[in-house]
Design a protein around this nucleic acid. Structure first.
Ligand code: FES
Ligand code: FES
Lengths: 156, 156
DNA sequence: TGATATCGTAACAATGCGTGTTACGGATAA
DNA sequence: TTATCCGTAACACGCATTGTTACGATATCA
């Protein structure tokens, strides 16, 4: 499967909006994400349904954060994007009545449950504000030498 | 993407072979996995390349374990199936020069590194023999009431 | 009112990767 | 020589995300 990049993209967009503290249109966001406005609406739509952002139609409309960056965790975004588990346990269902298959599956399920617990723990204590700080710190540590220099760097 | 069921399938097959302690043909294994002999050869071929099983062609040939079940860990099988990381971190590569994207990605990378560490730890200490024991224990705890009763249950 | 800017959504193609299938060649034992 | 088996190439399929086009609804501005 193509890798699911929605979480990373949304973190990027949300921190971007939080730092610039302004309304952004789907079109501008699409340019910064090298994608299509429809994809942006689709994905940000899920966040809107969970109260993380709000959208306004019509001229001058766009997307805006409903809370400050320190009020949103990575876990909040993850939960808004997909219900249920984050990782999909790679079990087999070839022979459901076989005790061996079940034993193998249960080993995998336990391992993945532990792994997902780790993910949730990290996601839960990481706020978007921390990501923003991290980004700013890096900015000073490693100034870009290319034409771009951070936000809206390529103007696109 | 379709879930990757190779690890679970291989664990099932290997434990099956270990318990019955015999040579199995791709055809028989394919039947027990509800799949195709070619898929079996493909996947078991990876394990052969890593010394977990061996194959013999010609009449009377088939697949056989090269070590006993307590000499193979789940991690061994995983490593034989795929090189590199087990989990794929869902990073974005839309704007590689943007510090915010990098910061978001690095959060995800750390979280996934921790999660994968959990997986590897569990995989590394779990042998196929343990899965076999688990299966046998379950067998006694919950005897099947249907026509099948364990290995080769539906004869298919 | 009319023109313009935005979101909302449906519909469908593209993509990636494990899986399923068919086909054929090589090897080994009866 | 025949019956099995593995090895491999080649190609179609399933499925979830992504990308694209099209059209409708809504809000602002001149
Ligand atoms: S934060 Fe604006 S483009 Fe990365
Ligand atoms: S162990 Fe033989 S079919 Fe499950």
């Amino acid at each position: 499967m193509k890798t699911d990049g929605r979480l990373a993209r949304m973190l990027h967009v949300l921190v971007h909006m939080g730092l610039l503290d302004g309304r952004e249109t789907s079109e501008r966001i699409a340019l910064m994400l090298n994608t299509n406005p429809v994809v942006v609406r689709r994905t940000l739509g899920a966040l809107r349904d969970h109260g993380i952002v709000e959208s306004e139609g019509g001229r001058g409309g766009g997307w805006k954060l409903t809370r400050s960056l320190d009020q949103v965790t990575v876990l909040d975004v993850q939960r808004a994007l997909t219900a249920g588990t984050i990782l999909t346990t790679p079990v087999s269902r070839d022979h459901p009545s076989c005790p061996v298959e079940r034993a193998a599956n249960s080993v995998l399920e336990e391992a993945y449950a532990a792994a997902e617990k780790q993910l949730i723990a990290k996601y839960g204590v990481t706020t978007l504000a921390q990501i923003a700080e991290h980004a700013k710190a890096r900015r000073w540590q490693r100034p870009r030498r290319e034409t771009d220099s951070g936000h809206n760097d390529d103007g696109a």
